[in-house]
Amino acid sequence: MDPILEMLIALESLDAELEDFESEEYRNSINITQSASDEVFSQQIDKLKELREEVVRSLPIAIYKRYQRLREKYKRGVAPVVNGICANCFMEFPSALVSRPVKNKSLETCPNCGIYVYWTK
């Protein structure tokens, strides 16, 4: 897999997890014994942000900026392509692209919405 795509996938996951931590529903679910304090959660969020920064530092700045713009617009920077369809804008990819045997070896974007794409199948 393209190493930049792999980092973008990791970044997307970390951003989603940061959003989860802001949800009370999430905190209650992972705190079933009520033994984790707000301070513990706060420390975990800080660690998550550090991990995010590490990933960001390893990305080319132009790609990170584009990722951020995509997240502002679509609330995500990477979308899966499932059965040849972009999960962000639902555009069907050209069959020539879908039928390629090798995918995810280079960084690609959706020709319609511009989001970075990960081919699931």
Partner: peptide, 21 residues
């Protein structure tokens, strides 16, 4: 960042990833 072993013998490892649909 913190174990998902929530105590009393239970763990709920979890994550989000675009590789699962």
């Amino acid at each position: 960042i913190g174990s998902t072993g929530v105590g009393r013998g239970v763990a709920i490892p979890h994550t989000r990833s675009v590789v699962v649909d």
